[in-house]
Amino acid sequence: MLGGDGEATEAVRLADLAAMRLLDQPGDAEKYLRQALSCGDGVLPAEHLARLSSQLVMVMSGQQGRERELAAAAQEAAARWTGISAADTVHLTFVAARALHRAGEHAAAVTAFAGPIGSGEAPYPPMEMALVFGQYGRSLKLLGRHREAAGQFLEGERLVQAEPGQAEMQAELAWSAATALDSCGEDDQAQVVYLRAARLWGALGQVSKRARCIRSAAWLQHWASPATSGGPTAMRALLDELEQLERAAPSPAVRTELTYTRRQLVEMEGQ
């Protein structure tokens, strides 16, 4: 049986074997890293163990179907970095949260996201942080926490507003925010954000998504003031726009949106 020094030496040997296989033999690298962590626990310095844990997370990242295992490894690594490197702790906590989100473990994902985001931590560039806010928002929305979800989507949208080439991400986040606001009864704000998303989709040439946002805003306007003609007016304006587009550049997508818009206008005017 190995003593403390012997265990430390064996752990270092296993870690070296893992390092030689990180790029081309990830399965072997993972095996050696797990053995090194087991053998070195309590005998290697805490930072050394934390680095080995980070390497294990790196090896496991990107392997489909292992999100729960990755989350567990990242949470363990984050715990090892606590008190040593705040930046590593935050990064690995986000790795765990995003893996849990992908695994459909939304309650656990929300708990993991809440720590660093609630503390205002933003360790990534704006585009990457917008993705994080989007994932957090979707997990919240799937738990029925629509108002909180809307806040995350709006923050993600804000981050990419000035980022070149990210108009589609901005539009997606705005649309997600609008639907979340709609779901929690924030009708006035939802209407504003639906119309913003519609403008963004229009600039991208996304006819169907633009039309859906406009119809949603029109219904909110109609329900808020059914005695006025605001909702039907917005729906007729969309119908005119789609009819002109069908004459100029007919397509199945435009015809589908025409059908939906005509049907919903009849329904709205019948109320």
Results as ranks from 00 to 15, higher is better:
Q166V: 02
L204G: 02
A79Y: 12
E186M: 06
Q189E: 11
R51F: 03
L56M: 10
A171E: 01
Q35F: 02
R199Y: 01
A50V: 07
L44A: 05
T228L: 06
R147D: 07
M60R: 13
T261S: 04
P252N: 14
E269K: 07
R102K: 15
E121G: 10
Q63W: 05
V132G: 01
E105D: 14
R236H: 00
S61I: 04
L23T: 11
A253H: 09
H146P: 01
D41E: 15
L17K: 11
G118M: 03
E241I: 00
L22A: 12
T89H: 15
L56N: 07
R145L: 14
Q55Y: 08
G65M: 08
A18W: 11
A167R: 10
L140R: 11
S38E: 14
A71T: 03
W223A: 02
H101D: 12
V160G: 09
W201S: 05
E30C: 07
D240M: 03
Y32P: 00
C213W: 07
Q55C: 07
R34N: 08
A74Y: 12
G270P: 00
D182L: 01
A107E: 15
L200A: 10
Q221V: 00
L100K: 04
R68H: 09
P164D: 04
P164K: 05
R147I: 00
G230S: 05
C184V: 07
V192C: 02
L52F: 12
Q63S: 05
Y124F: 12
A177R: 03
A86E: 13
S176R: 15
P26L: 06
E172W: 13
V12W: 08
R215A: 01
F113A: 02
T179V: 14
R98L: 08
G205T: 11
R66I: 02
H91T: 05
L181P: 14
S251W: 04
A96M: 02
M169A: 05
R21H: 15
I117P: 11
T82E: 15
E128R: 13
L131P: 01
S216N: 15
A73V: 11
R215P: 02
G65T: 09
A122N: 01
G270T: 03
A203E: 15
V43F: 02
R102Y: 07
A71Y: 03
E257T: 04
A114S: 15
S216E: 13
Y136D: 08
M268T: 06
R196K: 15
A86P: 04
Q206F: 05
W81Q: 04
S208I: 05
H222Y: 10
Q35D: 07
V132I: 14
M268H: 08
R51Y: 04
A253K: 11
S85Y: 06
G151M: 08
T179Q: 14
M60W: 04
A174L: 15
Y124S: 01
Q25N: 09
M169G: 01
R263A: 11
L52S: 05
R51E: 14
L49Y: 03
L100M: 09
Q75H: 05
P250L: 01
A96I: 02
P226I: 02
E128C: 03
V43W: 02
